[in-house]
């Protein structure tokens, strides 16, 4: 799998009818240019059409990753990593097992049932156990380790410490990431909004009161 940010597909006309679809693609521009140049155009256009068909076929092959290890480039906490992963590998597995970012935990083992694997992908909190690693190619992933390293975010972690918001610790990294994502989006939220926003994370020890207080403090203090 290649990195879409360097992928030429965006600039190629998608359909064979792409001729009329505007001037955004390089192929379209080339054709617009050729259209005005007289008798030699027809043959050249045919060649370019054949090239395009080949390009489209290639695109289709590229659009399907086989059920075998493929190259997956992940951008995690600002660093780029190139891994060989089967498509079935979830983002949680890639982060925890391949990149040793062990804050990102699979706790419920069932997908979307507990929130301990929460990471931020392109600014949004997601369950990494219900996301394939290969889906996040070209996106920015932030884990609890990344949150801890961010400037100014020690506030979230300090608030967790201050309000004793952790017991056994399994849910804590997911909660820290969730609180960070929530506070970024809702810096002035009240308790009701906090409870609703953080409903996607579970704590088996029951340290909710501490987490709530930590989140309240972060919301009061801005980011």
């Amino acid at each position: 799998m290649r990195d879409p940010s360097t992928d030429s597909r965006e600039t190629l006309p998608r359909e064979s009818s792409g001729e009329s679809s505007g001037r955004s693609g390089s192929g379209v521009n080339r054709r617009d240019f050729l259209r005005g140049t007289g008798a030699a155009v027809a043959a050249t256009a045919m060649v370019s059409q054949v090239q395009e068909t080949i390009a489209q076929e290639k695109k289709k092959v590229e659009a399907v990753a086989p059920a075998a290890p493929v190259e997956v480039k992940l951008t995690v906490n600002g660093k780029e990593h190139t891994l060989q992963l089967e498509p079935r590998v979830t983002l949680q597995e890639a982060l925890h097992h391949d990149l040793q970012l062990t804050g990102c935990k699979d706790v419920c083992g069932a997908a979307t049932n507990c929130g301990a694997c929460t990471v931020i992908v392109d600014g949004k909190p997601v369950y990494s156990c219900a996301t394939l690693a290969i889906e996040t190619v070209g996106k920015k992933v932030t884990t609890a380790e990344g949150v801890a390293a961010m400037e100014g975010v020690s506030q979230v972690i300090n608030a967790f410490v201050k309000h004793d918001a952790t017991q056994c610790g399994y849910c804590t990294p997911g909660f820290v990431v969730a609180v960070k994502a929530f506070v970024d989006k809702n810096p002035g939220a009240n308790l009701e909004q906090i409870l609703k926003g953080l409903g996607g994370n579970l704590c088996r020890c029951g340290t909710y009161a501490g987490v709530e207080q930590a989140a309240v403090e972060c919301c009061k203090g801005g980011k």
Partner: peptide, 25 residues
């Protein structure tokens, strides 16, 4: 595959075993 919030539950419980997952996002 869209959001994945149901699909991964089904996949991980081996309730479905597709040969190919098609991501429509």
């Amino acid at each position: 595959l869209a959001g994945g919030t149901d699909l991964f539950n089904l996949l991980r419980s081996d309730l479905i075993a597709p040969k190919r997952v098609v991501d429509i996002k």
